[in-house]
């Protein structure tokens, strides 16, 4: 695994050096969502018997921030180094494609977890939170973050320009995360949209993650776990395959 520790360290250092923009800013964005949505909807929406809307919203926002930032980290790091050409510094050394994959995904996961933890800490003031089954919290945070980090690697490698990456983000990642039950329980949706949500893997990440806090969820956390883990395995295989062939990285 020579090269892995350094590549991982470099990727973490890269976002940490601009931490205000990469960690603090998304925490503030999530807080704004919380303030506005909980203010408008607290008295109107009731999802679970014992849980206030604000409390319901917090895990969703934490997970949404975690996922979006994991994606943002690997994708923007790759596209930047591709556009500037500095990608060759990691293509010239004897770094295996597996080490390459792990370093980018784990560093993105660290960024996602940092932002997620930041959001969680910041929202503790607004809603009393319970941690009913913390292992689920951990499991879905790690799996979900890795999936979006993997998607970020794919997007970063596939995109040749920044606007292609923006398209990937706006037309795939944003709808998937927003339409996943962050702001509502999908049981409040009409049947058709409930069906659609069941095809969205992000729904299971958030539902399972939320289960860890309240011990209640729309579907069984075990079912979510299987679906999310399967997604991670498939995406990892796809990403590793791309890296092994040198797709778009080695002409």
């Amino acid at each position: 695994m020579s090269g892995f520790p350094t590549l991982f360290y470099k990727e973490v250092l890269r976002f940490w050096k601009v931490g205000f923009q990469t960690v603090a800013a998304p925490v503030i964005t999530a807080l704004l969502y919380l303030l506005i949505f909980s203010h408008v909807l607290e008295s109107r929406v009731h999802v679970y018997e014992t849980v206030s809307y604000t409390a319901f919203l917090v895990p969703g926002l934490v997970m949404m921030s975690l996922l979006q930032n994991a994606f943002a980290n690997s994708s923007s790091s790759l596209i930047q180094s591709k556009v500037t050409g500095s990608i060759i510094f990691v293509l010239l050394p004897p770094i295996s494609y597996r080490a390459f994959y792990l370093a980018y995904v784990l560093a993105a996961l660290v960024r996602g977890l940092s932002v997620g933890a930041g959001v969680l800490l910041a929202t503790l003031w607004f809603a009393p939170l319970q941690f009913a089954e913390p292992l689920w919290i951990l499991a879905f945070a790690l799996l979900g973050g890795s999936i979006l980090a993997s998607l970020g690697v794919i997007a970063g490698i596939w995109a040749d320009k920044f606007d292609q990456l923006a398209a990937f983000q706006n037309f795939l990642i944003m709808p998937l995360t927003f339409l996943s039950g962050v702001f509502y329980s999908i049981h409040s949706l009409p049947p058709f949209w409930q069906q659609v949500s069941h095809w969205n893997p992000v729904f299971y990440m958030i539902d399972g993650f939320r289960h860890g806090f309240f011990g209640v969820s729309d579907v069984s956390p075990w079912q979510s776990l299987v679906i999310v883990a399967t997604c991670l395995v498939l995406l990892s295989m796809l990403t590793l395959g791309m890296l092994k062939r040198g797709y778009k990285l080695r002409a």
């Binding site: 350094t6 590549l7 360290y9 470099k10 250092l13 890269r14 500037t84 510094f89 050394p93 770094i95």
Partner: peptide, 28 residues
């Protein structure tokens, strides 16, 4: 193999020394 590329590329996040240390790490 040590290759000096034709294009003038650099990683804007790091100092000269950091750049070299990181490059060392890539080679284990």
């Amino acid at each position: 193999l040590g290759v000096v590329p034709q294009e003038l590329v650099f990683d804007p996040f790091f100092s000269v020394r950091e750049t070299l240390k990181i490059q060392c790490g890539y080679f284990g």
